[in-house]
Design a protein around this nucleic acid. Structure first.
Lengths: 248, 248
DNA sequence: GAGTGGTCTAGACCACCTG
DNA sequence: AGGTGGTCTAGACCACTCG
């Protein structure tokens, strides 16, 4: 192991040692060689294995901690972080209910079918045009009141097992299920927020009049290595929402 | 200088040395003792002055670089960063015009008066209730088309000089003017985005029918030490906007 | 050429966790 | 008690900038 590792660090010699080590470790994590929760070798062991000083190892690990990929616990070790992130939507969104904030709404999956993906969604999911995918419609409710209408698309390739799942066992959070059931970890997402007008199925399910202002969030969720995994569009009555953000 | 500085670091001895040094330097910057653009002493000089190892100094400086307060340039030195941030609004907002993105709209200040602050705004600006403030109404246009209606409030206390300014000389960016004219630096801001319906003056100036969906962004801008400096509410036709964000 | 920050080394001691 | 990470030291050499 140790000689091979030294060879690996010699890859692109223009970069500093700590950078090359960070790249190696990052790659090992992204390709699934090291899974979330795994403990890495201690900094001294890494230093010996790669033939560099402990301080240099430390700087590489610090960079990955900065990235949010690793977590270091004094006296315990260095661990691959488990990205948990389904609450992120509600980190920015605040639902204007009596109760206040930080509630994850209840979830009702209204349908789950395999059907032809619209080409625009296929493109965003990096799938070939005119292929099949999994489509879900999900309502999210607070105190029984429908708040969000969600249309969710998954590519068949890694998510075939998802179709076998008992929907009654699916809770309000999908991403942990993607992990346990299909070995897919959502690491980041892009969101695009626009304002729309209510019409069709979403308007009906949200019990809104046609033309009412609707907030529309399109999200493309990606795995650790950047592969797009899930596309979803969430819509909700505009009056229920506020989006909060800090700029620096 | 050097002995005094050592005394300063002894303040709260539970914290690590690099942390205490970072706190001292941050405080010196926040209170205006070191201004944006100033060069700090080199890490070796700091180390000698404070009686610590250069590596420890380095870690303190790295933390402030991380915070965005300092900037280090190889061969030149370590500098206090000049926060420039008026473009941030448009880092998230994309205006759906033919031309595309990354345009700072033109600016027309329609009024600038001193008048009684609404109590809610006074509270947010940490001003006493029923005090006077500076109120501006500003339109922002792209290709001559009104896009945003802005209502802006400033506390009189540090901004009195702003009333003397020739408005024809005010460009599209206010924050650099706050700096040069009133010695106020905007370092961060909180934004709250909601959806509203057009009515009254904003609707008229934006040439919208009453009831049209309106995006409404309330922003509270703060100086380096966290003091609220400016409150503004920007409104624009919802159809013109999209808000983009990356979640990690 | 002198001074700066960027990288790297090779240790030391401490606080903390676990078996 | 032994291993872990957190802090700290005291240097080295390099690349870069500037006068």
């Amino acid at each position: 192991m140790s000689q091979m590792s030294i060879a690996a660090l010699q890859g692109d010699q223009r970069l500093p040692l700590y950078q090359r080590l960070a790249d190696v470790l990052r790659a090992e994590i992204l390709c699934g060689d090291r899974r979330p929760g795994d403990r890495l070798p201690s900094e001294n062991v890494l230093a010996r294995d790669y033939g560099i000083a402990p301080g240099t190892t430390r700087k590489a690990l610090a960079e990955l901690v900065e990235d949010g990929i690793l977590e270091r616990l004094q006296g315990r070790g260095t661990f691959v972080r488990r990205p948990s992130f389904d609450r992120s939507l509600f980190r920015f969104f605040r639902l204007r209910t009596k109760s206040g904030a930080d509630v994850i709404p209840d979830s009702q999956i209204r349908s789950r079918t395999v059907r032809r993906m619209p080409s625009e969604i296929a493109r965003k999911l990096a799938q070939p045009d005119a292929c099949d995918g999994i489509r879900m419609v999900r309502m999210r409710l607070i105190d029984g009141v429908p708040i969000l209408h969600e249309e969710i698309w998954l590519p068949l390739t890694p998510f075939a097992a998802f179709m076998e799942l008992d929907l009654t066992e699916v809770g309000p959070l999908l991403y942990p299920i993607y992990d346990t059931c299909c070995d897919q970890i959502v690491a980041r997402a892009d969101e695009l927020l626009t304002v729309d007008q209510a019409k069709g199925q979403p308007a009906r399910l949200l019990e809104l009049e046609a033309g009412a202002p609707l907030v529309c969030i399109e999200r493309l969720a990606c795995s650790l290595d950047g592969t797009p995994i899930e596309w979803r569009r969430s819509r909700g009555a505009a009056e229920h929402f506020q989006y909060q953000i800090e700029i620096r």
